[in-house]
Amino acid sequence: MVSNSNNGMSKYVTLRSSDGFEFVVLREAACRSGAIRRMLDPKSAFREAAASVCTFEEINGIILDKVAEYFYYNHKNRNQEDVPDMDIPPELCLELLMAADFLDSLFTVCSSLHC
């Protein structure tokens, strides 16, 4: 809710972790996740869509930090030919795996949607 764009949707969305950390990320970047995309779909009746805040009860702050980092990594490299690797500390790998499953994060971009 940093700014409001023309169609009444903010350019940024807030991701809130289970332990209360909030990450404000570009809507376009966050919408790479299928789950977030559905949550924020203005056509849906989800509370998150109206408030542009997604709360994840399953994901803690450390992991959500990495997830937000990934969104930007994905967003930044979406048209790159040579994509650099993203470093993940090994101790986070399992939790990130669970988060990945939850978010159904794809590398394909939802360009057709309102992102």
């Binding site: 990934y70 993203m86 993940i88 590398f107 394909t108």
Partner: peptide, 19 residues
């Protein structure tokens, strides 16, 4: 799976690489 295709690995892939 959307239209545009990029070479960015999926988050699952990133996590598996860390695993």
């Amino acid at each position: 799976r959307g239209q545009a295709i990029s070479r960015v690995p999926s988050l699952l892939e990133v996590a598996l690489k860390a695993c």
